[in-house]
Design a protein around this nucleic acid. Structure first.
Lengths: 139, 139
DNA sequence: CTCCATGCAAACTATTTGCACACGT
DNA sequence: ACGTGTGCAAATAGTTTGCATGGAG
């Protein structure tokens, strides 16, 4: 188990949640899938390891992880994807034509977030932004 | 029929699409609903006027309008909403707590879009952005 | 008159929920 | 042992599709 996973496992227990095999497997899957894991991807991966894990459990667990802040979700090309909420926040450029997703560093948004806070008192979540458009390849 | 509606009607015909009662009603509904119309809202409103209009038609028509650029879509609090693509682009701050949506002027994004284009050659659609966060009321 | 658009109903996909049992603590 | 988490299956919600008919051009 990686450092991240150990950390999350501890947090789970600290908050009174139980560390089950299913939750470990789902956490593993999220880590291994790296960036953007659709619910179906997570299910496939987990189910391949232990065929007894149900879809409902994947849904319930991802909701839980999201609530606890272990993962962030984003809507990319119409489907919801999850990824581990580690490291610094980053964002995504999604090409409307080819569907390609490129990561984007957070620094593009700090000024924006600052403006929103000063002008509207709005504390923006700037850690799971998705921007649609057309990439340089498809123009 | 308002100016906007007349304009869209002409565009429809120019591109070889037919102007049907259903399409007019759906366009009306979008205009009257103003800002953010979920598919269900549009259906309810249209169906109240003419009970023969089917949900499938609303879906098909909204897809068509979106394709033609008559409407823009956004994902707000998990459900897809549509609005007439008129005037200048604007954006939305969505409060994660109370669900309240406040409009946001485009000028916050021009610098960002410029950066994205220069650094990544990415032509960002900055006309239907949604930013989640917590509004000043809920903090 | 010719096709596009629609209504209808069914199919599909995605997600949620109730309940009895299993298992982590 | 206790109570949370899970599998199972069914329910629910949202969206799409095939086909015959109706109506716009």
């Amino acid at each position: 188990m990686s450092h991240d996973q150990q950390k999350f496992a501890d947090q789970l227990r600290d908050k009174g949640y139980r560390l089950t095999l299913q939750r470990q497997l789902i956490l593993d899957a999220l880590c291994e899938l790296g960036g953007h894991a659709a619910i179906g991807d997570v299910y496939d991966r987990v189910h391949a390891q232990s065929s007894a894990v149900d879809r409902a459990t994947v849904y319930r667990t991802l909701h839980l992880f999201h609530e606890l802040g272990f993962v962030v979700s984003a809507d990319i090309n119409g489907s919801t994807v999850y990824e581990i909420a580690d490291h610094q926040p980053h964002h995504h450029l999604v090409c409307r034509e080819c569907g390609h997703v490129t990561a984007l560093h957070d620094h593009h948004f700090v000024a924006l977030a600052e403006h929103l806070f000063q002008e509207h008192g709005f504390r923006a979540d700037i850690n799971h932004m998705t921007i649609d458009g057309v990439c340089h390849h498809c123009r």
